[in-house]
Simulated assay, not measured.
Amino acid sequence: MSRALQRRENIAGYLFMLPSLIFFLGFVVIPMIICILLSLTDANMHTEGMFGNFIGLGNFVRLWADKDFLAALKNTFVIVIVSVPAVCAFSLWVSSAIYRMKGPILSAFRCIFYLPVVTGSVAVTVVWAWMYHNYYGVFNYILGPQGLGLIEGRINWLGDERFALGCIILILFTTSVGQPIVLYVSALGNVDQTLIEAAEVDGATEFQVFWKVKWAQMLPTTLYILVITTINSFQCFALIQLLTKGGAGTDTVMYRIYWTAFKLTEQAGHFGYANAMGVVLAIFIGLLSAVQFKLAKEK
């Protein structure tokens, strides 16, 4: 291929990429840079200009003495630690049970599990709020004296610190398993059958076939599921905003960022401080994702 032809093809390729590159730069890269710069300032509603006064790492130092932020960070890690393994394990179990089913039945299961993913978060939240209601909710009716009798009286599920965070995790779990199940079903269907047959001929048990053959070929899919599930769990916001507004011990870093930037009007909206929270959250997500990548490569 001549250099002139190669150059024309390269130019054509970059032109096709240009719309996506403009979108990526305008809505990802530039906002990230602005976020980092704002995190180093005392910007708020009353400062002149966008950035206010430069204060260096003052906001980050202040974060580690902020009890509200530390509590939100703890809740966020609890959500991640509980929901990510649960979503991955449940998705793998369900997909292993249904991937050999015939077309219509398999499609029906995919639709059932994926429906919460494509349903609007507001609609899903309204249904769960009704189920958790402390007077006429489904859970109090089923578990109460008139049902299974597991609880003595009504429980304010979303208002009691003993249960509220667990209720949020349950909702996040049900809305997060759809995509991993679809991905795992596809990955299981693409496993090399000759390797499975060879392992069975050599006398491998069903568990050995799964662990040594199927699981090894599904590692890229598992890594992708771990990363996206981790990011979604770290960014839990809509459920908190719509159900508890950070009360009953359910505050998360994402909700704390929103509250600090847009709700603390009596303190003139701490944009710089809120952006510092966002930078810290991004660092934690990046570090955890890097660890997941490293562990996957070692296996």
Rank of each mutant, 00 (worst) to 15 (best):
Q146K: 10
G189P: 03
L195A: 01
L150I: 14
A164C: 07
D160V: 09
L223F: 05
T221I: 10
I171Y: 04
A204E: 10
L226R: 09
F173E: 06
P145S: 14
T205S: 08
Q146L: 10
G159N: 10
L226V: 14
G159P: 04
T194W: 00
T174P: 00
N140I: 02
V213Y: 03
N190G: 07
Q146R: 10
P145F: 08
G166D: 08
I171H: 09
V227Y: 01
I225F: 04
A199P: 01
N140D: 03
V201T: 08
G178K: 04
P220Q: 07
Q208F: 05
A164Q: 08
Y224E: 08
M218E: 04
Q146C: 03
M218V: 12
L223Y: 01
F173Q: 10
R154S: 08
Y141Q: 13
C167R: 15
V213E: 00
T229A: 03
L219Y: 06
S176D: 12
I181T: 03
A164T: 13
V213G: 00
L170A: 05
T221D: 09
D160L: 06
N140V: 01
R154P: 00
A187P: 00
V227M: 03
T194D: 11
N156W: 15
Y224P: 08
E161H: 15
L170T: 06
I168E: 05
A198C: 08
T194K: 00
A199W: 06
L195K: 08
L148W: 06
T174V: 13
L150M: 13
I142R: 00
I171Q: 11
L188M: 13
K214M: 11
T229V: 05
V185N: 02
E152P: 00
I196P: 01
K214Q: 15
V177H: 07
R162W: 15
W211S: 00
M218Q: 05
N190A: 14
A198F: 10
N156S: 12
Q193H: 15
L150Q: 11
V191H: 07
W157E: 04
E152F: 04
R162H: 14
F139Y: 09
I169V: 13
F210R: 15
G147Y: 07
G149E: 10
I142Q: 01
V182A: 04
L219R: 11
Q146E: 12
G159H: 09
Y184M: 12
P220R: 04
V227C: 03
A198H: 11
L172M: 13
T221K: 09
F139I: 07
S186G: 12
L226W: 14
N156H: 15
P220A: 12
P180H: 06
I151Y: 05
W211V: 04
A204S: 08
V209L: 07
R162C: 15
D202S: 09
E152T: 15
G149C: 02
F207G: 04
V209Q: 12
V185M: 05
I155C: 01
L195N: 03
S176F: 05
F163Y: 14
V201N: 02
V213M: 05
G203D: 11
L223K: 02
I225T: 03
L226E: 12
L165H: 04
Q193F: 13
P180M: 10
A204C: 09
Y184R: 11
T194I: 06
E206S: 14
S186D: 12
I169S: 08
I151W: 09
P145V: 15
R162E: 15
E206N: 14
R154M: 06
V177P: 02
Q146G: 02
Q179C: 06
L148T: 12
V182I: 11
T205G: 05
F163W: 14
L170M: 05
V213Q: 01
